[in-house]
Nucleic acid binder design. Sequence first.
DNA 1: ACCTTCTGCAACTTATGGGTTGCACTAGGC
DNA 2: GCCTAGTGCAACCCATAAGTTGCAGAAGGT
Lengths: 106, 106
Amino acid sequence: MPAAQLASVFAALGDETRWEILARLGAAPASASALAAGFPISRQAIVKHLDVLQEAGLVEAARRGREVRYSVLGGRLSSLGRDLERLGSAWDRRLSSIKQLAESDQ
Amino acid sequence: MPAAQLASVFAALGDETRWEILARLGAAPASASALAAGFPISRQAIVKHLDVLQEAGLVEAARRGREVRYSVLGGRLSSLGRDLERLGSAWDRRLSSIKQLAESDQ
DNA sequence: ACCTTCTGCAACTTATGGGTTGCACTAGGC
DNA sequence: GCCTAGTGCAACCCATAAGTTGCAGAAGGT
């Protein structure tokens, strides 16, 4: 995954309110209005957050009659997690091999 | 990990420049000035990014003579990745069980 | 001692992200 | 056909994050 897209997904995850939204959608799908009822901010603010989450591929929208029902896409988060895990351990391995070189060099 | 801290770490990861910095530090530790030479922005800007990354626990600073050498903390990223993976699959499991309920209900 | 290199601090500009309000539109329920 | 609940769009504040410049201080090389 290119760094540009990585950054935008994490930017989406870099907001406390959006995590709360994800948590509630993780419990059960809901509409923007239904969500807004449980938050101290306006429905429009919630919609903006949902747009960001949808753009990042973390949430899915489905029109159902006159309401739009949002649900969380856990798979996206899982694969992201696996990517991070790989990246982190790769860096750790490289760092320790560099340290070995430095020690054998003195 | 509480959602508040999660968000701040991801906010740190939500910037393209910081990903580039992490990538270079992942290749080899470096000082702020050395890093800045490879970027189109000022050293001060790099320092600010490094501060954010350090605050998030993604990077470590070590004074070495007159320079400060930064290195990436891959372990932090790995454990974060594992957390995400768990969370995502938990949501997916719950979502599919809700769907089953909905289908048996019609 | 002197010069150079790297760091640290502070003030400032600018862009963007989170939030608001107001209004128009659409789709179900009765 | 009318009312209501839910959505969509647009303009607008306000705080903060990204970046800049300028200068002062500390540490290594010669």
